[in-house]
Simulated assay, not measured.
Amino acid sequence: MRALTVLPEKHGSLAVTDVPDPEPGEGDLLVDGLAVGVCGTDKEIAAGDYGWAPPGRDRLVIGHESLGRVRRAPSGSGFSPGDLVVGVVRRPDPEPCGACAHGEFDMCRNGRYTERGIKEIDGYASQAWRVEADYAVRLDPRLAEVGVLMEPTTVVAKAWEQVEKVGARAWFEPRRVLVTGAGPIGLLAAMLGVQRGLEVHVLDRVADGPKPRLVADLGATYHRGGIEEAVAGAEPDVVIEATGASRMVFGAMAHNASYGIVCLTGVSSAGRPLEVDAGDLNRQIVLENDAVIGSVNANLRHYAAAADALARADLDWLGRLISRRVPLERFAEAFTPHPDDVKVVVTLTE
């Protein structure tokens, strides 16, 4: 079968290659791949920045934003042929740390976890794949065209859960949220904020194209100035930071309401110095009981929450997040950005 593979840490090695058909083990589902989303992680792996092939192998099948349809399921698995499914990305380490042992493998303490399409396990960018039934999640059949958005939705489902857990340390009734960045993570974070009944504001730098319209159609408010303009009406109780841009990160910390919570989901590039009044920032955080947290990856609980959020979302709006669908054999087009891209998807069916 055909799959999108890479030689980890070798720039220019991304290619469609022939790989062996999957051989499901006991308790595994055999799944026909429908699509995979392309995100910044995939582009960094393709650029040779990182990535780890399975032990004893040179090439890694990439793709962690999966969508497939069950071809064969073992008896008693809870799945049936024809079910629409996604595969979970991360697996706990073989000798689990305390967090992994309790199902919180997204919070692994020792770093010996593995990840589909990233670290030591083949991903989902192949015409067929296998997945353990315990690490597969069924989607509402209505999500066949947009279910590939599931994995990024898990990221923000976890971010919102973490915000709410931190907020619960004292009285917490947030009203206003600011999301920085209107990429897929930012827009999906905004969607979950709207589903919570919050007043949602989204800050990005583009003036036109699909992003402002997508925000407006959520019933949220779009801003394209600086963070000071976005918070001029009132400082937010919650900030979901989805850009990783250093200035935006520190701006979010400095412009939230008292008892504000800033959740960082964007990964910043190193080596870009930024002058910050650390003393003033520390003073604000301490005197206002603020909290700044980082959040990455997701566990099974977050996949369940994301599946529910997508099932309740407007399908037309979700469909508009997908800017382009590119056939597997023309994968290079998916890794070449276009100005109006939001989410680009590689289709795996003929």
Rank of each mutant, 00 (worst) to 15 (best):
L203G: 10
L139T: 14
W52Q: 09
S268M: 04
C108A: 04
I322W: 01
G219A: 08
R90W: 09
N256R: 14
I118V: 10
V238D: 11
Q162V: 15
S77F: 03
A182M: 11
D308T: 12
G271D: 06
E132S: 15
A291I: 10
D122I: 11
T221S: 08
E151T: 13
S246M: 15
L264V: 12
A182K: 06
R175P: 05
C263W: 00
F172R: 01
R283H: 10
V31S: 15
P8T: 04
G40H: 02
A270D: 10
R301N: 06
D134M: 04
I185N: 05
D32Q: 15
A304P: 08
E164Q: 09
T347K: 02
A168F: 00
G82F: 06
A309Y: 13
L187C: 12
I121D: 05
A3C: 03
V85P: 13
L84H: 05
I45Q: 01
R116V: 11
T336Y: 08
R142N: 11
W160L: 13
L34G: 12
G244W: 01
E350K: 02
A234I: 04
G117N: 05
G37S: 03
V346P: 00
V344Q: 07
L264W: 00
I285R: 03
S77Y: 12
E120Y: 06
R283L: 14
A306W: 01
V38G: 10
L143E: 04
F335D: 04
A252V: 02
V215K: 05
D83V: 10
L149P: 06
Q162C: 09
V61M: 05
R272W: 05
G76E: 09
F105K: 07
L143I: 10
E164H: 11
P174M: 01
A101K: 03
S75K: 14
T180N: 15
